[in-house]
């Protein structure tokens, strides 16, 4: 339960608008990412569709509800359902976010920011160990976009590095989230990348964001911007054994538009993958 083999491909998220394309098996991607919670159901068409997609593509599972930073601990029923789905899908890996989603049994269904303190690190690491034990596999955790930063002991990249060292978990680097948070909180995104343990990064997310009244907001409703592409190039130079993908959750265009964007990711990455040949 200590290793996740690197997978250097290019993929997209599985979204309803594109189910027919994936079921036809004609989408030239190396892997497909699913939102775990969309398929943690008892039965019916979602699982039927997922099984059919899985026959055609490698799949990675990406969750939004583990709440690994919850001070009250993890939801055992959630972990059991996630394990059942992972046993069915046999994904390349399972990921979630460095965040918390609720407290005292309530859930905001948002990825809320943690203070990067020693106490939070201890709680997060304890939760990660519990989740990895429950799922019988190491997990990946994604750096979140944040709109609030607390005055604490560590930077986010220091927190992530310590988390990996203490628990053996891996990282999903969301380059857009680094950019959004760096603008919102005024830190150096390149120093952030340099602070991450290169050997623990297994996947990269790319996405678009929007400009709110006071902050950048991670909306996943637009193409990747030039600044994020530039940061992605730097990330690719540092993290060479990673899978990369475009996330789009709103204003979802036809699959060809996303594939063109994925071609940019492929060409900027500097390493080949199956569909790059």
């Amino acid at each position: 339960m200590t290793e996740i083999q690197p997978f250097t491909g290019f993929g997209l998220g599985l979204r309803k608008n594109h189910y027919a394309d994936y079921l036809a098996g004609t989408v030239p991607v190396d892997f497909v990412e699913i939102i775990s919670e969309n398929f943690m159901v008892d039965g019916g068409r979602p699982l039927f569709t997922l099984d059919a997609v899985r026959e055609r593509y490698p799949v990675v599972m990406h969750g939004v509800s583990m709440s690994i930073g919850s001070a009250a601990g993890l939801d055992r029923e959630y972990l059991a359902r996630l394990k059942r789905l992972a046993d069915r899908v046999k994904p390349l890996w399972v990921s979630d976010h460095l965040c918390w989603t609720g407290v005292d049994g309530h859930n905001t269904h948002d990825l809320l920011p943690l203070p990067y303190s020693e106490e939070a690190l201890e709680i997060v690491c304890r939760n990660i160990m519990q989740a990895q034990e429950a799922l019988g596999r190491p997990l990946l955790f994604e750096n979140p976009s944040s709109y609030v930063a607390f005055d604490t002991d560590m930077t986010e990249s220091q927190f992530l590095a310590a988390m990996c060292e203490r628990t053996g978990c891996f990282l999903l680097l969301d380059v857009n989230n680094v950019y959004v948070s760096s603008v919102n909180h005024g830190f150096d995104p390149i120093a952030y990348l340099e602070g991450l343990p290169a050997s623990r990064v297994r996947q990269i997310h790319l996405a678009g964001h929007s400009r709110g009244q006071d902050v950048l907001i991670d909306t996943h409703d637009a193409p990747v911007c030039a600044d994020v592409w530039a940061l992605y190039q730097l990330a690719c130079a540092r993290f060479t054994s990673v899978a990369a993908m475009i996330e789009r959750d709103d204003e979802i265009p036809p699959i060809d538009v996303l594939l063109s964007e994925l071609d940019i990711a492929r060409s900027l990455s500097g390493h080949d993958a199956r569909y790059a040949a």
């Binding site: 269904h109 709109y147 609030v148 607390f150 919102n184 006071d214 907001i217």
Partner: peptide, 20 residues
């Protein structure tokens, strides 16, 4: 310094759940 960010989370909470 935290108030603009809190407003983003608060708006997102209501918008996401009403949209759902």
């Amino acid at each position: 310094a935290l108030r603009p960010g809190l407003a983003v989370y608060r708006n997102a909470y209501r918008a996401r759940l009403i949209e759902c």
